[in-house]
Simulated assay, not measured.
Amino acid sequence: MTDVTLATPGERQQRISDIFVDHPNHQQATKALQRFYMPVEGGIPSRGSICALIGQSRTGKSFAANDIVAAHKPRVGQDGVKRPVLLIDCPIEGGTRGILDSIADALDLTVSSRLTNANLIGVILRELRRAKIEFVIFDEAQELFPEKNKKILSFARGLLRKMLNLSQFNIVCIGLPETYSVIAEDPQLFGRGGLEHKHLSPYDWNNMVDQKNFRALCHKFDVEMPFENSGFGAQDFAYRLFLASGGCIGHLKNYLIDAGNRAIADASLQVELRHFADAYDARKRPGETFNPFRASSI
């Protein structure tokens, strides 16, 4: 631990927010994305297939996508920027035009609002070729496939088929578990590679391997926090953290940030159960009485 007396409160807050701890779920997600992109190390990118990385919210899917993008940075060619990996953040609204605009934004295209959807699709396909895209990632892909809106669902499926027809790259859809079934229901998409996928699950306390990994993860966070070690990895403390987070890394980080801020605010040398208890009380549902950090026996 860095001497906390040398850091301002703001610096300590930033340090907590910036903590990254590698862990098995993150490794699995990154490995799956790398396999979807380039199945043989030192080989060539796979092309023409659609894949999926699915799982409950906050299990680390998007973090892994950002890692892949960071590892394959754009480069400047003679006719403009070349992008090995294209990350598209799917819009939550905007309909079919919103989908196209999100792809155009990822490609840094400036397009007129007067351009028709059909013409914009042509512009996008040409830019995908010119920029030599090797791998396309749609994050929050469940937004592409709203089952209650058949028009957008049909449009999105058709657009992905057109992109795959370029035979230039694989597409991976990152989203909630239902993303897999919505894609698989389209035989034309499913036929593009058989829909290889990876399903990320939260850590399961009843699984001894998961429990060991979760406790190790908690301990690593403890070591990185700008405080004296608090014993996050101890079985009792880790179990309380598991109950609060449901085994999801994103939820765990939320509690660590809030509890850490509370500990900084009251000049505590450690992040204590009371700090987590207050953080949990601030988030529990109306009418909920149980707090895993206050319960004397769990």
Rank of each mutant, 00 (worst) to 15 (best):
A295P: 10
S17R: 13
L159V: 04
V271N: 06
S102A: 14
M163C: 06
S113M: 11
N229S: 14
A131D: 07
A29F: 05
R161E: 10
V40E: 13
L128K: 08
K198G: 03
N207V: 11
D258Y: 09
V81L: 12
A282K: 05
D18N: 14
S245H: 01
P202E: 03
N66T: 10
F155H: 08
Q56F: 08
L53V: 05
G287Y: 01
L153W: 09
F237T: 03
E228H: 15
I249G: 01
G287E: 03
A282C: 08
A65D: 02
R294L: 10
Y280R: 00
L164E: 07
T116L: 10
R285K: 13
R129S: 12
G175L: 03
Q270T: 15
R129K: 15
L241F: 06
F276W: 10
P91N: 07
H219N: 14
V271T: 09
V85L: 05
E224I: 07
L164Q: 03
R294Q: 15
H197A: 11
D22R: 13
G287K: 08
D79H: 13
L86K: 04
V81S: 04
I137H: 00
A71E: 10
E143H: 15
L109V: 02
Y239L: 11
V69D: 02
E224C: 09
D89T: 14
D18K: 10
F138M: 03
M208G: 11
H275I: 04
L115E: 14
E11A: 14
G260L: 04
F169C: 12
E147T: 11
P45D: 04
Q142I: 02
C51T: 09
E185I: 03
L217A: 02
A141W: 06
N165I: 07
D236M: 04
A216T: 13
G193M: 00
R129W: 09
Q188F: 02
F227E: 06
E288V: 12
L128M: 14
Q28F: 04
R75G: 09
Q78W: 11
A259F: 06
L243P: 03
I152V: 14
